Simulated scan of single mutants.
Amino acid sequence: MKSYDEQSDAAVPPVLLVEDNRINQMVAIQLLKRAGVGADTANNAEEALRRLSTHEYRLVLMDVQMPGMTGIEATQIIRNPDSDVRDHAVPIIAMTAFSSEQDRIACMSAGMNEFLTKPLQIDRFVEVVQRFLPVAPSTADGDLSPSVSAGAHAGASAGAAEGERGALPVIDHRDLLLRSGSDEAVARDLLRRFFERLHNAGEPIAAAVIAGDLDALARHTHGLCGAAGNIGARRLYTVLKQMHAFARDGDLAAAALLLPDLEVEISAVRTVLR
């Protein structure tokens, strides 16, 4: 079997997905599959740059916040005409849990072409991908229209206000199935992986609050928040998103007040999935 670097460009899928979180990778791959698009994956920015230096892709989906080199730093290298990548003009779509206008401007200023927030809203994701990479959805994968509409509603309601959190499901199985490409086996695998990830997941977040480490708090809540949203853990997602916002705003006291809620929601998800 040929190594990746020995493959011809004709054998390389059109999309390079750059994402360090396996759950988020799986969801994005399923959504691309539903749109009839294949993808390679890179687990970090450095790996992405190596692949872009040996092969040309038609589109890059770039996570913004990754350990080590960030997606913004990687984009700046890709756009640098003196770098080793083969296509400096390849379209790059940012994927991030950061949703402020300041975040969008930072991504676009670095040279990205579009901006998507996590959890991925299905209709928006498909629209953006097909704008940069026009394809006809595979008839084998079914009609996208019903899933797109429902997925947009589920994604939008994932960020419900704190007072409404109790009315949200612990796990939105309908949303999960949509993000799994209507594949029950993939949905079960996502839940299994998330259940494993939740083991002691609150400890580094609590430790960051106790230590007053806002950077660590933002990092830990960000990593868990995107995965929670993508598997339909809507109540947990809401708490994590609020804590992450407080961390970025420098409001440690407000984040600390949410620690009991965080433990409650982590326990609720683990109970449902056990």
Rank of each mutant, 00 (worst) to 15 (best):
T75N: 06
S149D: 10
E6P: 01
I72T: 09
E265M: 13
M1G: 14
I210K: 04
Q76E: 13
L258M: 07
E127V: 05
L224T: 07
A94N: 11
Q30K: 14
E101F: 01
R104E: 11
R174W: 00
G223N: 06
P137T: 08
A152Q: 10
P119L: 07
R34V: 00
R34W: 02
R179N: 03
T271P: 00
S145Q: 09
T54H: 11
L120A: 13
G212T: 09
D87S: 04
A161E: 15
S147I: 05
V269N: 04
P260Y: 11
M95F: 04
R124N: 13
E263D: 13
E47I: 15
S157G: 02
E164R: 12
T238A: 15
E184Y: 05
A10W: 03
D143I: 14
V18S: 02
L49G: 11
L198N: 07
V60S: 08
I78L: 07
A227T: 04
L49R: 03
F115G: 01
K33M: 08
G36K: 01
I92N: 09
N113E: 07
N24G: 13
P13N: 10
A211D: 08
P169K: 09
V272E: 15
R188H: 08
A218T: 04
D143H: 02
D215M: 01
M26L: 15
G71W: 05
I72C: 13
R248S: 11
D20P: 01
D5A: 07
L120E: 14
F132H: 14
D5F: 15
R270S: 10
E127A: 08
L59S: 10
G155W: 12
Q242M: 10
A207F: 00
L214W: 01
L224I: 02
H220I: 00
M1I: 11
A201Y: 04
R34F: 05
K118V: 06
